[in-house]
Design a protein around this nucleic acid. Sequence first.
DNA 1: AATATTAATCGTAATATTACGATATATAAA
DNA 2: TTTATATATCGTAATATTACGATTAATATT
Lengths: 110, 110
Amino acid sequence: MGVTRTEIFTQEQNELAQMMKALAHPARIAIIQQLLKSQSCICGDLVDEIGLAQATISQHLRELKAVGIIKGTIEGTSVCYCIDEEVWKHYNKTFGSLFNSLPIVGKSCC
Amino acid sequence: MGVTRTEIFTQEQNELAQMMKALAHPARIAIIQQLLKSQSCICGDLVDEIGLAQATISQHLRELKAVGIIKGTIEGTSVCYCIDEEVWKHYNKTFGSLFNSLPIVGKSCC
DNA sequence: AATATTAATCGTAATATTACGATATATAAA
DNA sequence: TTTATATATCGTAATATTACGATTAATATT
């Protein structure tokens, strides 16, 4: 027990859930907001601005990287992170198609 | 260790993360999609359509109810669930404001 | 009243996530 | 080359999530 049964769901359902999960932590939201605001950001600055340990931020960055939403480039001894705009647009579109599928108002039973 | 440090984040960041988390499971996505499609749904039908145990579906329904995204009304011995349209719109708006805050393309560093 | 049906809750095992100190790695500076 | 700086990874403890059988609660049917 305890393991999510992805095999019984559609690819779309699993993908949507995975997208949501990637953003389902305030630290990762904070990272994304920072990158949206400043276009790019040195990893160390994120550690300073968000009050979590360096190892923890690094772990969250890895999760965001794993779903492709951010990418990082090495700049000397530091790493500059930014949002992958193509992936971000894909997220936006996918989320939009979920939310905009609510039909005409006032038909629900309860 | 192991407990999310919500106190160091803004209310907006925590709320966004909580919203995402509510939808961060394929079973809950499937439930929402079903409710979007059929306007309303008997709990038992969800159990049949999604291949998870009744107790598990009930648990997922409770999580969706906890964030207000769905509501249920008792109909005899069964319970009819549907999406709370006001809350759904709020989600749509909040997600939209996150995704649409990506500024002009082509400015990122990496 | 007795029985059937439906959904919620309880208990619990398996798994996943979160956080952080310690350590490793890799480049920069002295 | 030695030392400093920045980030990733390892190891691990605490906590949270997922799934399901068993039970409970509440209404419906007989």
